[in-house]
Simulated assay, not measured.
Amino acid sequence: MTRIAVIGGGRIGEALVAGLLESGRASKDLVVAEPTAVRSELLGERFGVRVTDSVADAAMGADVVVIAVKPQHVDGVLTDLAKAELGDALDQVVVSLAAGIPIARFEAKLPAGFPVVRVMPNTPMLVGQGMSAIAPGRYARPEQLQLVTEMLESVGQVVTVAESQMDAVTAVSGSGPAYFFLVVEAMIDASVSLGLTRDVATRLVTQTMLGSAALLDESGQSAVELRAAVTSPGGTTAAALRELERGALRSAFHEALHAAKSRSAEVGGTAD
């Protein structure tokens, strides 16, 4: 069995561990590196996996080393990984879930020719509904990319993109849940202003979003087609959509995603 080391026991690291176990991975094949004692104890008790405070200890002997830490902690992790003598005993691959950090930064600090796969996940992986985009480094082989794909499919869906598209992916699916939650928040507030209780408004909006997403996913129709099917000429939906268009909703999303892409490039040092 593939042995997987998860470096970082935060929410994303925990979600990956939970998904891997749910998909049938044995707890003995997983190890987590987490320096915070309280968090370490919680993960060990909740999932029955080995948890260590040493990055080098976790990575030693692992087939896949997943770096699931905040971007500012990546360099420290790479320094610690150097102590693990990566690549000496096994054909290992490093998988980065750290937002904005380019593959070249990992390849420069890891042993020459070391395979790296960059991933942009999102928070719905916490409930097994994540969207992950993966980009292979220069030395990652097809079978390693497939291994990473299968690992991430335990917590959602996966697409493969060129690394040059990662800033755009970050703007769309990486930050996307926040846009969705903002729309939900706005709809709930507006519903309350119509006289509904917040509990009822929350239930109405949440289920409407869930049902609409399922319909879009399963119907085979485009968002344009489904929107048109709900919009009768001169009806209530048409009146509402007219106000949203008047409020420049499309333009706001266009500017928002471009801003997110630009910021992602700045963080990763890839901005023009």
Rank of each mutant, 00 (worst) to 15 (best):
S232F: 00
R246A: 08
V66T: 01
S164Q: 03
P35I: 07
R50T: 12
A248Y: 05
E85V: 08
I101K: 11
S173R: 03
A135F: 05
Q165N: 09
A252E: 08
M125Y: 00
T149P: 04
S191W: 04
L81M: 06
R138S: 13
V230G: 01
V38L: 15
A201I: 06
R11K: 13
S27K: 15
T160H: 12
V6K: 08
R141N: 00
F114P: 02
A59F: 03
G234W: 00
T170P: 05
R105K: 14
D53T: 13
R3Q: 14
S193V: 03
V38N: 14
L43D: 07
T236A: 15
M131T: 04
A33I: 05
V6T: 03
V267A: 12
G76W: 12
A214L: 10
G10S: 11
A104W: 00
A178Q: 09
R11V: 15
G9V: 01
P115N: 10
V183C: 10
G156K: 08
L249G: 07
L210E: 06
T236C: 10
D189E: 15
A84T: 03
A26P: 05
A33T: 07
G247H: 09
S262F: 08
L16C: 09
Q157M: 06
S132E: 01
Y139W: 15
V158Y: 12
G268W: 06
G195D: 06
L126D: 04
Q129S: 13
F47Q: 11
V184P: 11
A26V: 05
S212P: 07
G10Y: 02
T160D: 02
V192R: 07
L152S: 03
L215V: 06
